[in-house]
Design a protein around this nucleic acid. Structure first.
Lengths: 203, 203, 203, 203
DNA sequence: CATGAATGAGGGTTCATTCAT
DNA sequence: AATGAATGAACCCTCATTCAT
């Protein structure tokens, strides 16, 4: 329902999924390394394990690869967020756990997140909007978890800000690694951030 | 000591500065609009008010333009930060004022900051390191202000985190404008963020 | 004896004829619209109602399609010319009738004729020669009709020229339609041309 | 006023004219040989005596080359037609002379005319219209000459037809050379055609 | 016989960079 | 110092053709 936005010459839907997965995997590796603009379509094809001709059987333009890649990254984040979030009972402790898992997840996906930060703006207006909507959804989930877990200590507005802060602080661990990861272990970082955030909410 | 890293054929230092200022101004406009990779050197020359040949009298490669531009943006931020920070007497209130001015500054320079986020990675290893050092310096300044203003309520580590959070939350206002600026005015945003941060530190 | 010049993997001659007829029909539609070079083999296959793989069971190269198409057009013209010409008794009136039917035919096949004019040169030397021979035959038929109908008023050479003129004036109605069809109805055009031609022959 | 329809990066108007003349010359040679579609831009550049990069300093797309080429051919024809036509006093003899010179001209430009017939349809709607207008102008000139020279023997409509016939019979000598030039010398052809045409008008 | 996924040579076009003037 | 014409490597993308199923 979303990958189908990108048109393919090939009819076999399973094959499309398979080839695009190869493609995305190859593209992520390359985009991490040299960014979207410095990566050529031939390199993407090669990294995907097929020819340039085949690549273009599954996409229409190079930008499609970027879209599929960004989309896949968000999809991955969303999926893992939902797994981590759904199990919890509403309570301060469960909120802490949710934030912790989110930070661990962001640690895991540092480089992928970087791609979003640096390349998503190269998507066309419409496509970018579609991708940003996904991001908004994730922040919304976070916000709901917060309001669910500590409803008494926080206003709606504060929850919005808090959700955004958590969201970006998770990214920050990755895109500011050269400064943060030299001074803190992941556990320390998580601990300090959660403390700072929740102490504020508890006052 | 820094712009001289970029080699020029021209001897006259004043002229170099003048031409490069034109160049940076043109480049920022263009990079805001279409990013570094989608901007051509011809366009930069035109926007700078001189010919492509002249452009290359003052730089060696296109990347030099990016470097000069990023450098100039940081320089601009640094300068204005220093102005805003130096006057204050250490106190909780002065810290609040510092943060406020920083947020106003970031509101002002939203698009320039975006350039740094999206394009700085296109700099060569060495050059990028040079630029990042400047950023580190700025966070350090923030950290010192914090430790200076509220030494009793905060540990060294917490100050590091807080400085980074402030720093990034300032950027966030710009690069997440599509979500934040629809829900909050700048003043509300500042108010909420400062409250959340400092309440935590005060508990 | 002529379509067999194009090699097919398929044995069943009837099937070959059937498929090639589909193919020619599809190709003519496409060539009218966008010309030979801008039409892809995939489009031809689709317009023919079968897959690209099947297309290549019945031809060897894309040029074969062009050849078959040109050949079919000529064949169509020839067939209808013969029908129109054979019935007549030699006389001035019957010559007029012949020319009239030829002009009506050319009006009917305007677009097909255009294909011949614009694309036949893309055929390989040998193949093109084969096609041109067909054309020559048709002019010969015209010439004979002329000599048959008005032997006294015309020399052999004049008949050759006249046959070629009629032939091309028929085409002209189609390929100069943007100029002729705005000024004349088909009937007027026929009337004027026949008058001009035959008055000359009658002097 | 017409070549300027094609945009160039280069500013020096004289240079543009010089380079485009080289380009047109190269292109005509190649188009004669293999047609527009089978000619690559690299070949055009080479035949023009400069690099592919330089080629694209003087045009925007490959189609521009076709346009410039067709335009130049028409311009050549027009120029020579005007020279041949203007000197004459209106009389039957002068009309004959005009037609003769036109046929000689067409003999000279056979291959160029063929390009127009076969490739002009590859021009975009608008551009093609522009080119066709030039053709219309030429037929108009012929028509006026006719009406001027033999006003008494011919109606307006007949003159239109006659002008178109002369026009196309000139082309025919070239694009049907494989049939006509084997049977007639140019002089014979001219003689026969003029006789046929004017005898008709004189009856 | 029919299918359609796979291939890769090759085409049009761009653009960073150079260098003669 | 300033100019801008020239260059060609390299990019994105297409499409005729093949071949395993």
């Amino acid at each position: 329902m979303n990958k189908n936005k990108v048109v393919s010459n090939v009819k076999d839907q399973e094959l499309i999924k398979k080839r695009r997965d190869q493609m995305i995997k190859g593209a992520i590796t390359l985009f991490k390394e040299k960014g979207f603009h410095r990566t050529t379509t031939r390199e993407i094809a090669k990294a995907s394990g097929f020819s340039i001709g085949t690549l273009y059987e599954y996409i229409r333009t190079k930008e499609d690869v970027l879209y599929l890649t960004c989309d896949a990254i968000y999809e991955q984040v969303r999926e893992r967020i939902e797994n981590a979030f759904e199990l919890e009972q509403p309570s301060r402790e469960s909120l802490v756990k949710v934030i912790e898992s989110y930070f661990y997840l962001m640690d895991d996906l540092q480089e992928e997140i970087l791609i979003l930060y640096q390349e998503a703006k190269s998507l066309k207006q419409e496509t970018r909007g579609y991708i940003l909507q996904k991001e908004r959804n994730m922040v919304d989930i976070l916000e709901k978890v917060i309001l669910n877990c500590i409803p008494e200590q926080i206003t709606k507005q504060e929850a919005v800000i808090l959700a955004n802060n958590i969201f970006v602080q998770g990214h920050m661990w990755g895109f500011r690694r050269w400064i943060l990861q030299k001074q803190f272990s992941l556990e320390e970082y998580i601990h300090l951030q959660i403390n700072a955030m929740l102490r504020a909410a508890e006052k």
